[in-house]
Simulated scan of single mutants.
Amino acid sequence: MAIKQLRTLFASQYQPGQPAHVRPGPALQEPGGDYEALHKQMKRLFNSKPGKKYGRFSEDLGECPFSAWLKDYQEEKQTFAALTDRLFGQWQELLNGCQEEFDGHLMIVHEALADAEVIYLLIIENDSAMRFDSQQALDATDVLSLSRLNLAVRIELDDWLGDNAGDNYLTLVHGRGTGEPGELFIKLCGFTNQVDVEKETVTFLDAVEAFAKTSAPEEAGAVRNRAYEFCKEQHALGEPVEIEALSGYLDENQPERFKEFAAQTAELPESGVLHPDHRKVKKLVRIAGSGGGMSVSFSSDLVNQAIYYDRDSDALTITRLPKALREQLQRYLEERE
């Protein structure tokens, strides 16, 4: 990982209706060290965040001019400092009209990867911490939160401006509870949603399940597990699922088999890329349910091996109980007796 450019701005709006207070930092070229470590942690939070949205820049440049400024920067028509001056100015203007309190650091990072370049916009929040000062008096101070990330966007520059430009080059983190500042951040980025994640999750699950059923019963579970593992790895990297890559992962001997099967049985996007919700993809390998004071979850591989379901009596029989569960049950019964 190498940061080409980085700049931060602290902004606060404590009195809705009054101008927001801002403190911009200098534009840093290849800041290295501590900044790299901070960005690495923010990326880790970004990649692990569930419920991300995927889309593109709004075409309304009057309302959302960031994409035009960014393009000028990429074409070297303006410097990084000039780009961020404009971006920070718009963020302050948006916060001026905000009716909710806000404070946080807006950080923009231009990162060069081995095979691509990306831009991150992140809102870094503060945590309150206690310390003893030089006189051993207790003092409250603010520190950067390294465990929360509720507003951020990643821009895949090559997918946006490259020869094979795609439609979903923006990845957005928009956490619950961000309120009006969250909506203003989306406006600042110029994000417009193009991907129905719920629909693509269903498409992914249906395609894998149907493909698994074409295999022998003893191999179907392995197909589901490999599909889930692939999806989980992509989520950890912050990447969507490419059908062609998944196809090769599911069957190394016949790498095109799943791809051809899915093309015939599912409505795949032209890009051949899906953005499934990794939390729901877990249904491929786990069966779970709760209600009526009971919560049950187990690997689907255990059905008809250690767990048996009788449809007629609607009864579930569990054998080979986990040791911890067995001990709890025995202890509970002994206490009752």
Rank of each mutant, 00 (worst) to 15 (best):
M1Y: 09
L6P: 02
L6A: 01
F10P: 00
S12I: 01
Q13L: 15
Y14S: 12
Y14Q: 15
Q15T: 14
H21D: 13
H21Y: 11
P31W: 01
G33M: 13
Y35M: 13
E36K: 05
A37N: 12
L38A: 15
H39C: 12
K40F: 13
K40H: 08
M42V: 06
K43S: 09
R44H: 14
L45D: 03
K49H: 10
K49G: 07
G55A: 07
F57N: 07
E59S: 15
S67D: 00
A68N: 09
L70N: 04
E76F: 11
K77A: 08
T79E: 13
F88R: 02
G89F: 01
Q90C: 02
Q92M: 11
E93H: 12
N96M: 03
G97T: 12
C98H: 07
E101M: 06
H105W: 08
L106Y: 08
H110P: 02
L113P: 02
L113N: 13
I119P: 02
L121V: 03
E125T: 04
E125W: 06
E125D: 15
E125Y: 07
E125I: 02
D127C: 04
S128Q: 13
S134M: 12
Q135R: 10
L144F: 11
R148K: 15
N150P: 09
N150H: 10
L151E: 01
R154Y: 02
W160C: 01
G166P: 04
N168I: 08
T171R: 08
L172W: 05
G175A: 09
G177I: 01
E180G: 09
E180I: 04
P181L: 00
L184Q: 10
F185I: 03
I186N: 10
I186G: 11
K187E: 15
G190S: 03
N193H: 06
D196T: 06
V197W: 07
K199I: 02
E200T: 01
T201Q: 02
V202K: 14
A207C: 13
V208N: 01
E209K: 05
A212G: 00
K213N: 14
S215A: 13
P217T: 03
A220C: 06
A227Y: 04
F230A: 04
C231S: 14
C231P: 00
C231M: 08
Q234A: 05
Q234W: 08
H235Q: 04
L237Q: 15
G238W: 03
E239N: 05
V241I: 09
I243F: 03
E244D: 10
E244A: 15
A245I: 04
L246P: 06
S247P: 03
S247Q: 05
D251H: 07
E252N: 02
N253E: 14
Q254P: 00
R257M: 05
K259W: 02
A263H: 07
T265H: 12
A266Q: 14
E267D: 14
L284K: 01
A288K: 10
G289P: 00
S295T: 14
F298A: 06
S299F: 09
D301R: 03
L302E: 11
Q305C: 05
D310I: 14
R311G: 02
S313E: 05
S313V: 05
A315T: 15
I318R: 06
L321W: 06
A324H: 11
E327L: 12
L329S: 06
R331N: 12
L333A: 12
E334S: 11
